[in-house]
Structures are given as structure tokens and as C-alpha cells.
């Protein structure tokens, strides 16, 4: 195991975050605060409760999930796409590192950033509303699993993309709609039966539901199903990354 390489990549990526602190941390905190002001205070004051929880508290897991997904994908995709774009990827490709070590460095750093961000958003939320976390370990597990999984997805995206447009297509045209339609800001029980069934096809629903269960023990789908889904998706993404590195897909000509 080339531990020095993992640490080198990890530190390199974390240093990049320190250089872009405003973009990485401050911007998401401000946007989250705005969500709380608009949805929690302005609109939420007119909605009494959702499934026994105040509306402001209800949207917290959804907001955390939205940020985890978006930032995991963008951090990890940029981390591998940029070296490809400027050509510095030659060094990683010619280094004595295995796929697992490369992934541990890049995805580990991207996931760490997302986890820190998730915790900051949670902290920010406490300034606006009272929050209770019934199952903090499960909550943490969901945050970690989601961050790793979507960082892996971002890594795949970064390898696949050969221009900046492709890099932004998946987060903006696929993930954002899925998050907004995945019960982040509403309970699917508010929807007509047909759309409730359609919502079950949205994978993000399982993540939001699982995270919300860890907070308030309310869920659209069983917590075990949620955990199994995110684990299965993580394994699928990891397998794809291994395949890409083994075959050299869009990395080695």
C-alpha cells in the first residue's frame, strides 16, 4: 500500500479547498441560510407542521442532502477533470499507485470536504431552528456514505467528461431536479397517489428519507432499504471507477 501517495493526493486536494474557502464553505453556508430564511421563516411560518415536525426542521435533512450531493460531485469531478484538462494527470498515471490508492486520495478528500460542509450546514441550521437528532450515529453514517458515494460518482463524471459543459450537465440537469423532486422540501404524502408512486423511482428520495429518519424517525421508505440503496450505489460507483482505471477509459490512450 502506497500510503505516502494517498496522503500526498489527500493533502493536495485539501490544500485546494483552503485556497478556495469562500467557494467551498462560505458560499454554501450563505445559500443554506437563505433557504432557511425563505423556506423556514417566510413560507414555513404559514405551514404548521409536516408529519409532526416544524417545517423549518423538516427541510434540514433535505438541505444537508442537497449540499452533500452537489458538492461531493463537483469536488471530486473537478479534482480529476482539472489535471486531465491541464495535462498534470500524467504524473498520477505514471506513479506507482493502484486504483484504490488514487480513489482513496481523491474521493477521500472530496468526501471529507462534503462531510465538513454537511456539519457546518447542520450547525448553521441550529441558529434558525431547534433541531433534535434521534439517531446521531445513523445520521453520521448516512452523511459519510452519501459523501463517499457521490464523490465516487463525481470522480466517474470527471473521468468521463471531456469538456466543462459535460462536467456541469450531471449536477445541474440530473442531480438538482432529483433532489428537489426527492422530498427534500416536502413530504411525498402531500402528493397525489400516482406521483407518490413515481417518487419512489427517484433514488434521492431514499437518501433524504433515510437522513430524515435519523433526525426525526419519520421516513417515506424503510431505513434499511435506504441504507441498502446507498451501499449498493456506492459499490456500483466504485466498480465503475475500478473498471475505468483498469481499462484506462479516457485516461490512458
Amino acid at each position: 500500500m502506497n500510503v505516502y501517495a494517498i496522503l500526498a493526493i489527500y493533502k493536495f486536494e485539501m490544500a485546494r479547498t483552503r485556497r478556495t474557502l469562500v467557494q467551498s464553505i462560505v458560499a454554501p453556508v450563505i445559500s443554506t441560510s437563505l433557504y432557511f430564511i425563505v423556506f423556514g421563516a417566510a413560507i414555513g411560518s404559514r405551514i404548521t407542521e409536516v408529519e409532526g415536525v416544524s417545517y423549518g426542521a423538516f427541510i434540514v435533512p433535505g438541505l444537508i442532502m442537497l449540499n452533500l450531493l452537489m458538492h461531493s460531485i463537483s469536488n471530486a469531478s473537478f479534482a480529476i477533470y482539472f489535471p486531465k484538462f491541464v495535462g498534470t494527470v500524467y504524473e498520477v498515471l505514471s506513479a506507482p499507485v493502484s486504483t484504490v490508492e488514487v480513489v482513496a486520495g481523491y474521493v477521500g478528500a472530496a468526501a471529507t470536504k462534503s462531510i465538513i460542509l454537511g456539519m457546518i450546514i447542520l450547525l448553521t441550521a441550529t441558529f434558525f431552528i431547534d433541531i433534535q437528532i434521534e439517531h446521531p450515529i445513523i445520521m453520521l453514517l448516512f452523511v459519510v456514505l452519501t459523501s463517499i458515494t457521490f464523490s465516487l460518482l463525481g470522480f466517474i463524471l470527471g473521468i468521463w467528461a471531456d469538456n466543462f459543459e459535460k462536467l456541469s450537465v450531471v449536477p445541474s440537469l440530473i442531480v438538482t431536479p432529483l433532489v428537489f423532486l426527492g422530498g427534500s422540501f416536502y413530504s411525498t404524502e402531500m402528493l397525489p397517489p400516482f406521483w407518490q408512486s413515481v417518487s419512489l423511482l427517484n433514488p434521492v428520495l431514499y437518501l433524504v428519507s433515510g437522513l430524515r429518519w435519523s433526525f426525526y424517525e419519520i421516513a417515506e421508505v424503510n431505513i434499511i432499504v435506504s441504507l441498502a440503496s446507498i451501499t449498493a450505489f456506492m459499490l456500483l460507483c466504485f466498480s465503475l471507477v475500478v473498471y475505468m482505471f483498469t481499462t484506462g477509459y479516457k485516461l490512458r490512450s
Binding site: 502506497n2 505516502y4 501517495a5 496522503l7 500526498a8 493526493i9 493533502k11 493536495f12 490544500a15 485546494r16 485556497r19 491541464v86 495535462g87 498534470t88 500524467y90 504524473e91 498520477v92 505514471s94 506513479a95 506507482p96 499507485v97
Partner: peptide
């Protein structure tokens, strides 16, 4: 193996020291 590539491919935003130290770590030293 050490490789000096033909193209000037560098990490623009890194310092000289950190990019050289990064290479050493990447190669398992």
C-alpha cells in the same frame, strides 16, 4: 522512473515547494 514531460504541464496555483513535495509523496517516498 522519473519523467520530465515535453509539455509544460504544471499545477498553476501550487507553490514550487508543495508541487515538488507532492511528487515525492506520490511516488511512495
Amino acid at each position: 522512473i522519473g519523467l520530465v514531460p515535453q509539455e509544460l504541464t504544471t499545477d498553476s496555483f501550487e507553490s514550487v515547494w508543495s508541487t515538488v513535495a507532492f511528487s515525492r509523496g506520490l511516488f511512495g517516498k
